[in-house]
């Protein structure tokens, strides 16, 4: 059974805020990004390494810096404890699968270390699709 997006947001926020790898270099990790999972979208707002807010019902004019878009099936692959090859990261899936990275990619690059660690938390937390 798929968890609700609200339950997911709580779990993801807690997992991120207590992650030691993010915490070790969190000070300037400030950005807002959307994860478009096909049937569900979320906007995660980060401020100084902590999850400030997760918007679980983004509206058309809600702002974010960059977005990752892929099918729900791809997001479910991302969330497996050990993803299959080509679903094991944002670069792999954008080169070889249906993941699209759009928006202000410079901001993603500026936060790439922590964003990559945070993305892999999906393997523990799961996805709401």
């Amino acid at each position: 059974m798929v968890m609700t997006v609200r339950d997911w947001a709580v779990r993801f926020g807690e997992a991120s805020d207590r992650d030691q790898t993010i915490g070790a270099m969190a000070r300037y990790f400030t950005c807002a990004y959307m994860w478009d999972m096909g049937t569900q979208k979320v906007i995660v707002e980060m401020v100084d390494g902590k999850v400030y807010r997760i918007n679980t019902d983004p509206q058309p004019l809600d702002a974010y810096d960059f977005v990752l878009r892929a099918s729900a099936a791809t997001w479910r692959e991302f969330a497996k404890p050990i993803p299959a090859p080509m679903y094991h990261g944002i670069w792999a899936a954008s080169f070889r699968r249906d993941l699209k990275i759009e928006g202000n990619i410079l901001i993603m690059m500026q936060n790439l270390r922590n964003f990559t660690v945070q993305f892999e938390l999906l393997r523990k937390v799961g996805v709401p699709v």
Partner: peptide
């Protein structure tokens, strides 16, 4: 931060 972009940009060239 080019150092982090290079290092994390190749991160998922590795197996989980």
């Amino acid at each position: 931060n080019a150092a982090q972009v290079c290092a994390s940009g190749v991160w998922d060239l590795m197996a989980p």
